[in-house]
Design a protein around this nucleic acid. Structure first.
Length: 482
RNA sequence: UCCGGUGUGGCGCAAUGGUAGCGCAAGCGGCUGUUAACCGCUGUGUUACAGGUUCGAGUCCUGUCACCGGAGCCA
């Protein structure tokens, strides 16, 4: 199809724009060439007036970190009428010629032929002025914070990571599986759940003094999913390799910089993978994602490296080059026991490793990502495969320096009798999981999988300290606004 | 949820129990192919909320809420 550009440089005749199609700033800067006719649309970041009879407008349209400088001569028809309303935050369109800049600081700029105003932003009231704002403040104006440099960068990197995840799995023949948001499996041990109901909470129907869920929408008690893993296993044991990438909900009263009540999780599940295959995939996965961002988001990453975390580029590159340390839980405990480091919590075989222990191993001992595997059976979930020693399970956690656990996974128990036994031992009713046990009764296969918290990934890659600042609309205890 | 800290102009922060200030942003003026512009002037407050102690509370006490740091749970 012909996409011929209008050859006529004159863009505006009597206020009627001749060029209709918007140019994205990203595309204009990417080409880096002069052009007689461009049309940009975006938000004014700053305006600097010159008494030489013209103004400099910096326009950002979110397509990339950089804005485009517009030189607007005060003699433009109708310019004086709108000049005082071209404030920080207002939205405009500008047509004109893209030319080499006479000033320093940018190579190209737009010599405006017409400047039009879409929406004003009263400078006395608009909260985002051209100054630094704290992330705490920006969280209170989550509807405006995407217009800041940092959030633009974080969200573009977030998008790239999501894309890279799909690409990584697709290229390896994995099927993207949509697992249900509403579930009935309410005792996976993955945390408190949000109940889903259409019952009148003021006067719920009762039966024998208890709420009668038979009258609820689904005829039984339901909740928002805390994991797509169990459903993922169903499809892995049919399509071989699948992954889920969807929202996950935990009703924990967690108030930390690493927890959200609603977050996105990636959960690959693979038939015929043992724990080692699983660890191989996890390591390859992390490295592929970091490499992808380094390669495709150089401008945003350079900004984050300059303003957010001065070591982030170096850190990501190091992870890509490193060989993840793989260590038995038992050896990790020995290392911690022998350490001269003073820990708040003591260490002994059988206890769960604390944040301080994990950080010590990844930051001080190995100074790179660490995968700890073969954890004690007692501290891990029922579905993890028991080792021959009868004491440990084939579980693994991937720990990143500073962030801690980013991936948790395991080889799944594929023996129906053993699985049922462990369910009972952990106080679960095998009847509730009849379909999960069926997978082991009919054509069972060794299989493995892991879960990765998407926001924690974005956190690590961008260097952002608070998880609430890497998701568009954070949900945390007492906060569901916007 | 636990421990600790904080809450004061739009934002970031000061103020020994005794007249609430500074910087940034904003408004006005000046200057300049400017660019985190610069220079001058101006305005900006129920000191988170509810009680209490005191002649007098931003400051002390009690409670609530929020935010930050750490921890637990976890991803």
């Amino acid at each position: 199809m012909s996409m011929a550009r209008p050859p006529v440089p004159g863009l505006s005749i009597g206020g009627v724009m001749m060029k209709k199609k918007r140019d994205k700033i990203r595309d204009l800067l990417g080409r880096g060439e002069e052009s007689p006719a461009v049309l940009i649309k975006g938000w004014v970041r700053t305006k600097r007036d010159s008494k030489g009879g013209f103004s400099f407008l910096e326009i950002n349209d979110g397509s990339c970190m950089s804005g485009l400088q517009v030189v607007a001569n005060h003699s433009l028809p109708g310019y004086e009428a709108i000049a005082h309303r071209l404030t920080t935050g207002s939205c405009v369109f500008v047509s004109g010629a893209l030319v080499r800049s006479q000033g320093r600081g940018q190579t190209l700029e737009v010599q405006a032929a017409e400047v039009g105003l879409y929406g004003t932003a009263d400078a006395e009231k608009y909260p985002l002025q051209k100054k630094a704002h704290s992330f705490e403040f920006l969280r209170e104006i989550a509807h405006l914070r995407p217009r800041t440099n940092t959030f633009g960068a974080v969200m573009r990197v977030r998008h790239r990571l999501a894309y890279a995840i799909h690409k990584f799995f697709h290229d390896r023949g994995f099927i993207h599986l949509h697992t249900p948001i509403i579930t009935t499996s309410d005792c996976e041990g993955a945390g408190e759940m949000f109940q889903v109901t259409t019952l009148d909470l003021a006067q719920p129907p009762t039966c024998d003094g208890k709420v009668d869920y038979d009258q609820d929408f689904f005829g039984e008690r339901t909740a928002l999913t805390v994991s797509g893993q169990l459903e993922g296993e169903i499809y892995a044991l049919a399509l071989s390799e699948i992954y889920t990438f969807g929202p996950t909900f935990r009703a924990e009263n967690s108030n930390t910089s690493r927890h959200l009540a609603e977050f996105w999780m990636v959960e690959p599940e693979m038939a015929f993978y043992d724990l080692e295959d699983n660890m191989d995939l996890a390591e390859e996965f992390i490295k592929a994602l970091f490499n992808d961002v380094l390669q495709h988001c150089p401008e945003d990453m350079a900004f984050l490296n300059k303003r957010i975390d001065p070591h982030i580029l170096e850190t990501l590159a190091k992870v890509c080059e490193s060989q993840f340390e793989r260590i038995h839980y038992t050896d990790a405990v020995h290392l911690l026991e022998k350490s001269s480091e003073k820990f708040v919590y003591g260490v002994e075989w059988g206890c769960a490793l604390q944040s301080e222990h994990e950080r010590y191993l990844s930051e001080k001992v190995f100074k790179k990502p660490v995968i700890i595997f073969n954890y004690p059976e007692a501290i891990k979930s029922f579905y993890m495969k028991l080792n021959e020693d009868g004491e440990t399970v084939r579980a693994m956690d991937v720990l990143l320096p500073r962030l801690g656990e980013i991936i948790g996974g395991s080889q799944r128990e594929d023996d129906a009798a053993l699985l049922e036994k462990r369910m009972r031992a952990k106080g679960l009713d095998p009847e509730d999981y009849w379909w999960y046990l069926d997978l082991r009764r009919f054509g069972s296969a060794p299989h493995s999988g892991f879960g990765l918290g998407f926001e924690r990934l974005v956190q690590f890659v961008t260097g952002m300290e608070n998880i609430r600042d890497v998701i568009p609309f954070p949900r945390t205890p007492r906060h569901a606004r916007f």
